[in-house]
């Protein structure tokens, strides 16, 4: 039973990986970026858990910068994905321009909040 569960899991992972290998390269780049942002946020949370949240606004702006940019990247991914029929007419360049603009606005606010 246990063995079969392990095998199933392995099989599941395998199929997932092979399916993921088929995703276009630009989407993979975005995934990588999202992972980078999420990990940076996690490290900051770990830091806060260890030493306390004294410059609380700095901590908040760090976390929010990472999660914000990750969310924006996810949005970009949704819009760029060719299989998403909803955004078929939207050129990826336009989506990228939105992403850049939103990031700039986000970070202006973050910098203001950073203190």
């Amino acid at each position: 039973m246990a063995r079969s569960t392990g095998e199933d899991a392995q099989a599941l992972f395998h199929s997932l990986r092979s399916a993921y290998a088929a995703t276009p390269k630009n989407l993979k780049i975005i995934d990588l970026y999202v992972a980078f942002a999420v990990f940076t946020a996690l490290i900051q949370v770990a830091y806060m858990a260890m030493v306390g949240s004294f410059p609380f606004n700095s901590f908040l702006s760090g976390i929010l910068s990472c999660t914000g940019t990750a969310v924006l990247a996810v949005c970009l991914r949704i819009q760029v994905n060719k299989e998403n029929k909803e955004f078929k007419d939207l050129p990826p360049e336009r989506a990228y321009a939105d992403f850049v603009l939103c990031n700039l606005v986000l970070h202006l606010v973050i910098m203001n909040f950073l203190g």
């Binding site: 980078f36 942002a37 990990f39 940076t40 490290i43 900051q44 830091y47």
Partner: peptide, 12 residues
């Protein structure tokens, strides 16, 4: 921790 935050970037 500063170095640690740079790690994901490196990974990226």
């Amino acid at each position: 921790f500063l170095a640690l935050t740079l790690l994901p970037f490196l990974g990226f």
